[in-house]
């Protein structure tokens, strides 16, 4: 066997090895809930940041969009602006439409169309004012982009009501690999960028991240007398992020590494208040590397359900028989 065919076989095995995972159902539901929380959290002050008169002016911020066909909120304004009395009303209407399609995505009704529309509206919101963007917005865009072509319609209304075809196991594996490699890029470069700064090695960055407003959710000043704690935390962050692409593909370290990264994001959510950033990263990590574990939980739930069904069936038969026996007994005596 020559090298090319060996590479071909290896690549085929890596990307297209049949995989019957149902993790994408989890992904769809989790991403939808994450986006719903995002919409709810910005609803009341949407006009201040994305409106025509607020903390920034949309007409000004949209001039920073370089390309003509990048979605933006003024498209909605141009088409539906006359329907509303104020810009604030229009923005709320956009968010309500977004919310509606997020719910249909959550339920899995017209999943593909819902994913496309939610991606479009999400892009409109975030691209209209790039001054307000942070990491979470990019990861939400990536996740919604994944929802547009990945087999996310498992356990959905599309499947139960519209009898949509399920994706092939090869394509499922391809999608899992797609997310996995993306995660490897994210963590490797995230870790590498941190590694080239001195302050992530001496604990100063970790200290600053926890004490800098508005990320200072908790007072950690007590620990300042033990600077080594911050140093170790900084080292742990850099090492775990940089070695993520290697360790998550080893059988022995996979679970440990992903669990540490998930714990790191939990801490970011709790201690720094970046709960939406934490949630989307945890969702992506679970989808990419804990699909077997989630499938196991799904199987347990399915087994429990079927056991309950059987039990109900037995009960019904038993009581029917009991009734029948009772009447027979009465007839006899």
């Amino acid at each position: 066997m020559n090298i090319i065919s060996k590479v071909n076989k290896g690549l085929d095995h890596f990307l297209f090895k049949p995989n019957g995972t149902n993790i994408f159902a989890f992904f769809r539901v989790a991403v939808s809930i994450h986006c719903i929380v995002f919409v709810v959290s910005i609803y009341s002050e949407m006009h201040k940041f994305f409106g025509l008169s607020g903390f920034s002016n949309r007409e000004v911020t949209e001039t920073f969009i370089r390309l003509k066909y990048i979605p933006r909120l003024s498209w909605f304004h141009d088409v539906f602006g006359s329907w509303f009395n104020t810009d604030e009303q229009m923005l709320h209407a956009v968010l309500l439409i977004h919310l509606f399609f997020l719910i249909t995505l959550l339920l899995g009704l017209f999943t593909r169309v819902s994913a496309l529309i939610t991606l479009f509206i999400h892009l409109c919101i975030v691209q209209s004012n790039t001054f307000f963007l942070y990491g979470m917005d990019y990861f939400t865009t990536i996740s919604l982009f994944f929802c547009t072509f990945m087999p996310v319609s498992d356990f959905s209304l599309d499947q139960s009501l519209l009898k949509k075809k399920i994706a092939s196991p090869e394509f499922r594996n391809f999608c899992i690999r797609f997310i996995q490699v993306q995660m490897c890029f994210i963590y490797f470069f995230g870790g590498f960028h941190k590694a080239i700064g001195i302050n992530w090695w001496n604990g100063e960055s970790m200290w600053k991240a926890l004490t800098r407003p508005p990320f200072n959710n908790f007072d950690v000043s007590f620990f300042a007398q033990y600077p080594k704690i911050f140093m170790v935390m900084g080292w742990m962050t850099v090492v775990h992020e940089m070695f993520y692409p290697i360790m998550v593909f080893t059988k022995f370290f996979r679970k440990y590494w992903v669990m540490v990264i998930i714990s790191m994001h939990l801490c970011i959510g709790i201690f720094m208040g970046l709960y939406l950033f934490a949630s989307i990263m945890i969702i992506l990590n679970i989808t990419a590397f804990l699909s077997k574990e989630v499938d196991y939980i799904f199987k347990k739930i399915a087994a429990f359900k079927s056991r309950m069904l059987i039990l109900n069936g037995v009960k019904r038969i038993y009581y029917a028989n009991l009734k029948h026996l009772n009447t027979a007994f009465r007839q006899m005596y």
Partner: peptide
């Protein structure tokens, strides 16, 4: 650039790096 914007990959992943920004 359209592809990068529509897929959320238009930026790198060096958040809080190489140093945590000042407030």
């Amino acid at each position: 650039n359209y592809y990068l914007a529509y897929t959320g990959t238009e930026t790198g992943y060096g958040f809080f790096a190489p140093n945590v920004p000042t407030s």
